[in-house]
Amino acid sequence: MKHLRAINKKAQRIDEAVTQMEAAAAPNADMEEDVVALQQAPRPHVPMGCSLSFSPGWEVDASGGTAGLCQPVERDIYDCYVTCFWPVQVPDHVNYSPDWASNCATATKDWRSLDLVFP
C-alpha cells in the first residue's frame, strides 16, 4: 500500500490482503458500482423479508405477538398486490388474473378463498 503504513500485525494482514486484491484485479477495474437492489438512501429501516416495503403495524404488535395488530396479518398479501412494485408475489391482476381475489371480500375472514393461479 502506498498511503497507509501498517504498524501492527492486524494491519499487516490487511496490507497483504490488499496486495493480493491488487494483483488479482483487472488493471482498470471500474470503481463505480452497479445499481443494485436496496441501495436507495435513506435505506429502508424495515426487516428484509420477501417484501421490500411494509405498512407498519401488521408484522408484530407492541407485545411481540400478533393478537393486537392494528391490521390483520392477511392484509399483507393485499399490500403486495396493490401497492408494491415487486412483480412476483401475487398474480398479475392487470393482464392475466384480474379476478384472482374476487372470492375474498374480507381478508381477515376469508383469505383462504384466495384463488390459486396456475400460469
Binding site: 497507509l4 503504513r5 504498524i7 494491519a11
Partner: peptide, 17 residues
C-alpha cells in the same frame, strides 16, 4: 494514525489519506 475498529488494525496515514 487511524485505529480501524472493524479490524483492530493500526495504520500510519499520509496527507493524502
Amino acid at each position: 494514525f487511524v485505529y480501524l475498529v472493524s479490524a483492530g488494525a493500526i495504520f500510519e496515514i499520509d496527507t493524502d489519506v
